[in-house]
Design a protein around this nucleic acid. Structure first.
Length: 273
DNA sequence: ACCCGTGTTCGCTG
DNA sequence: TCAGCGAACACGGG
C-alpha cells in the first residue's frame, strides 16, 4: 500500500516493534525469489539471524534498516502491495507472507506482498549512500521539505505532463499515483499541462499541494485505524478514485478520470487549469 | 472472462 | 545521447 505516507507509517510501526529486539530466525518463501534477488533465501536468512535493528529510516518509498552490532543494511521497498505486519506469538500468519523475522520477544514480523513487486535487499556495511537507486532520489519531501526553486528547475526541463513528472522519484521521492493527482487538484493545476509550461507561482502552488496532500495522509495514519483499502474504509482523498462525483471544491463539475502514462489520473475539469 | 490496481524497470524509438 | 513511451512483472478483487 505504499506511497510516502504509508511507508512513513510502516517505518514508525517497525521502530516500535523492533526497539531493543534481536532477530532470532528468518523464514522466506521459495515462491517469492524475485523479492530477495540478488540474494538467495539462505544468504538472506544467514545475514539477518542474530542481529539487532539499530535504526529504521525512510527515504521516499524506501525503508532503510540499519542492523548491528556489525553494520549491515536492509533495504525494503514495498512495491505496490507490500506491507510489514506484526503477529503475536502463536498467531497465524497472514496470507501472502513472503518473509518472516522471528524476534526474541516471540513476535513475528511478516513481510506480506501478494503481487511480489516489493524488494528486500542487503546493503553491506549499511552503506546506503552507495546504493544506486537511493542516490538517484531527490530530497525527501517530508523530511527535507520541498524547495520550489529546485522543483521549478526540474519541471522546466521536461515536456512530460506535470502529473506524470510527479511520479519521477528523482523529483519528489515518495509521491505516487494518488498524491500526484491530489497535489495537482490542490494546486488547481491541470494534470495534463507540460512541466515546462508552469509559471513560478504555479510551481509554488504545486509544492504546497504536494506538501498538504502528504501531510494530510500522514496525519490520518497517526490515528488508531483508518487506511484506504485496508478493509472497506472510506476513501480519504479529494479526487482520487472519485470519477463522476461532484468536485469537492466547486461543487459543480463531475470529476474526470483520464489515463496518463498508463496510470489513472483524477481531476476537476472546471477548477484545474 | 475482463478490467483494474498506492510501483518500478527494461528495451525501443525518434 | 537521451527523453519519453509502452510493455512487462504477478496476483487478487470487482
Amino acid at each position: 500500500m505504499p506511497e510516502l505516507p504509508e511507508v512513513e507509517h510502516a517505518a514508525r510501526c517497525l521502530r516500535e516493534w523492533v526497539a531493543g529486539r534481536t532477530i532470532v530466525a528468518v523464514e522466506t518463501e521459495p515462491r517469492a525469489l524475485r523479492i530477495f534477488r540478488p540474494h538467495s533465501r539462505a544468504a538472506l536468512a544467514r545475514a539477518l539471524r542474530g542481529r539487532q535493528v539499530a535504526s529504521v529510516r525512510r527515504v521516499g518509498k524506501h525503508l532503510l534498516l540499519a542492523l548491528g552490532p556489525e553494520p549491515l543494511g536492509l533495504l525494503s521497498h514495498l512495491g505496490m502491495t507490500g506491507k510489514w505486519l506484526r503477529r503475536a506469538p502463536g498467531e497465524p500468519a497472514p496470507s501472502h507472507s513472503r518473509a518472516r523475522l522471528l524476534l526474541d520477544d516471540g513476535a513475528v514480523l511478516h513481510y506480506r506482498d501478494p503481487r511480489l513487486f516489493g524488494r528486500l535487499r542487503l546493503v553491506p556495511g549499511a552503506r546506503f549512500d552507495e546504493v544506486t537507486e537511493l542516490r538517484a532520489l531527490g530530497p525527501d519531501p517530508l523530511a527535507e521539505g520541498i524547495d520550489p526553486r529546485r522543483l521549478g528547475q526540474l519541471l522546466a526541463r521536461t515536456r512530460r505532463a506535470v502529473k506524470v513528472a510527479l511520479l519521477d522519484q528523482r523529483i519528489l521521492p515518495g509521491v505516487g499515483n494518488i498524491h500526484a493527482s491530489e497535489a495537482c487538484f490542490r494546486a488547481r493545476l491541470d494534470p495534463r499541462r507540460r512541466g515546462s509550461s508552469l509559471a513560478a507561482a504555479e510551481v509554488r502552488a504545486l509544492a504546497a499541494g504536494v506538501r498538504a496532500s502528504l501531510r494530510a495522509a500522514v496525519d490520518a495514519l497517526q490515528g488508531p485505524e483508518i487506511v484506504y483499502v485496508e478493509e472497506g474504509g472510506e476513501n480519504p482523498f479529494l479526487v482520487y478514485a472519485r470519477e463522476g462525483e461532484r468536485c469537492p471544491r466547486c461543487r459543480k463539475a463531475p470529476l474526470r478520470r483520464i489515463v496518463q502514462a498508463q496510470r489513472s489520473t483524477f481531476f476537476c475539469p472546471r477548477c484545474q487549469e
